[in-house]
């Protein structure tokens, strides 16, 4: 299995790695770039925990061959905060107790960041849909949805 060069821009940093066709984006992020904020919960596209933003859209990195991401802009959970300044979504998750074990949190946050980027005033259905792609076993989703709504309000207040 011949390795090939893949170019990825991850959280604004350009990387070049030689990867085998069988390597997933999740593996490259976690094992090569040590970006372990992206979680491996099921590895077959069911749990949602490995979500990253690929060219701005949330995708499951366990289902993306690394070679498929060649040339793409990737944003992981490590790239959401601006230095020590939390993104309003992150702050809302903290403040509203939307976090228990935290294993689904990176995915939930990235999905919510994308939602608010594309739909600054989401209704309840849009928020539920945004949350529905990730399994959370701790919170029953309640506080996560509340946090996304709160973040939407915070974002519209401070443009």
């Amino acid at each position: 299995m011949e390795k090939r060069l893949v170019k990825l821009t991850v959280n604004g940093v350009a990387h070049e790695r030689a990867v085998a066709p069988a390597a997933t984006l999740l593996e490259v992020l976690r094992e090569e770039l040590f970006l372990t904020g992206t979680k491996r919960g099921c590895d077959v596209g069911d749990c949602g925990c490995c979500t990253v933003l690929l060219d701005g859209a949330p995708v499951l990195s366990c289902l993306v061959l690394a070679l498929e991401a060649d040339g793409a802009e990737i944003r992981t959970i490590e790239g959401v905060a601006n230095g020590n300044q939390l993104h309003p979504v992150q702050q809302a998750f903290v403040d509203h107790g939307a976090i228990q074990c935290g294993f689904c949190t990176p995915s939930m946050v990235l999905n919510a960041v994308h939602l608010l980027d594309t739909n600054p005033s989401p209704d309840a259905a849009a928020v539920k849909t945004c949350v529905s792609g990730t399994i959370c076993r701790c919170t029953g989703y309640t506080k996560i949805e509340q946090a996304v709504h709160a973040a939407a309000r915070a974002c519209t207040k401070t443009p």
């Binding site: 904020g37 992206t38 959970i77 490590e78 992150q90 903290v94 976090i99 228990q100 935290g102």
Partner: peptide
């Protein structure tokens, strides 16, 4: 949670 910021930033 005391670890919330760590969890929310990865």
């Amino acid at each position: 949670q005391v670890g919330a910021v760590d969890k929310v930033t990865g």
